[in-house]
């Protein structure tokens, strides 16, 4: 009877090792004083210092964050609207098509999305003269189009779980549709909007493939920069940069996780107290 836990534990260890050993080794080597990425030359934090002096990397990081902020915000607005339409208006002309079109990018290979966006931007320029040059605008638009799918799906699934009669109740109490949206629907889906935004933000922040098609001269996002640097060989400063990114993401995930957990526990406790006090 002892065999199964041992087996499970082994599988678990392998799984975790598979996921985290590469990341940990990268983090370890970011503290390597040697220039060679694979040979240990003693502990050092000099690559972190070098990173801060590297204007190219800092500029790329700033650009990436800007694009991520703008594209995440816009795709959250559009995705929320699409999600509400799909979840709430059960029957309208073109519902099936909209639903299919919104979710198909989930299974579309990035390369194809990238090529089609590139062709679209070129055509657009030909006929309207805008955007004059591929760069910030086109990358942002491309990111919106890939993250929109995710936001829409998140919002739609949250809404389909929510009790439709809550909105009807608000309307019954005299609220017009836009007031229902403002007072009831949006507050209820606020957590989904937030997580949709975070998802869109991270998708934008780490995209390489689609960005490489949509970008133009002078617009180098962080992932593109790392990608082009790595092509010339892995250097310890890239390790340092990646370690910082992993640390930031880990902290963010941890903080949200703890906050959500705490809110849930408080809710449960309140509900329990209410029942104890009244039944």
């Amino acid at each position: 009877m002892n065999r199964r836990p041992t087996f499970l534990l082994t599988v678990l260890c392998f799984g975790f090792a598979f996921l985290y050993v590469p990341i940990v080794s990268m983090m370890v080597f970011s503290f390597n004083s040697s220039r060679l990425a694979t040979i240990w030359g003693g502990f050092s934090t000099k690559w972190y210092g070098k990173l801060l002096e590297n204007d190219q990397i800092l500029a790329a990081a700033k650009l990436s964050v800007e694009i991520a902020l703008i594209s995440a915000t816009l795709s959250t607005i559009l995705g929320t609207m699409a999600g509400i339409a799909l979840a709430r208006f059960r029957r309208f002309r073109g519902r099936m098509m909209l639903s299919g079109m919104v979710t198909s990018p989930l299974i579309m290979p990035d390369v194809i999305t990238g090529i089609s966006l590139l062709i679209f931007f070129i055509m657009l320029k030909e006929y309207t003269g805008w955007p004059a040059q591929r760069g910030f605008t086109t990358v942002t638009l491309a990111h919106i189009s890939i993250s929109l799918t995710y936001v829409t799906t998140v919002i739609q699934s949250r809404l389909s779980q929510a009790d439709l009669s809550i909105e009807e109740a608000a309307m019954d109490l005299g609220s017009r549709p836009w007031q229902v949206m403002k007072d009831i629907t949006l507050p209820i889906i606020a957590p989904a909007i937030l997580s949709g935004w975070l998802l869109a933000f991270t998708i934008s922040l780490d995209d390489v493939v689609v960005t490489s098609f949509a970008t133009g001269p002078g617009t180098t996002t962080l992932p593109i920069l790392i990608w082009s640097k790595v092509k010339l060989g892995v250097t310890p400063d890239i390790n340092a940069l990646a370690t910082i990114i992993v640390a930031v993401v880990a902290v963010a995930v941890l903080v949200t996780g703890i906050a959500v957990n705490r809110a849930e526990r408080r809710r449960d406790r309140d509900a329990r107290l209410a029942y104890q006090a009244n039944e």
Binding site: S165, I166, M171, G174, D183
Partner: peptide, 15 residues
Amino acid sequence: YERPVNMMFQSYALF
């Protein structure tokens, strides 16, 4: 929203 009618829902539909 313009009817002089209010409803108590089966699920109560409290906000």
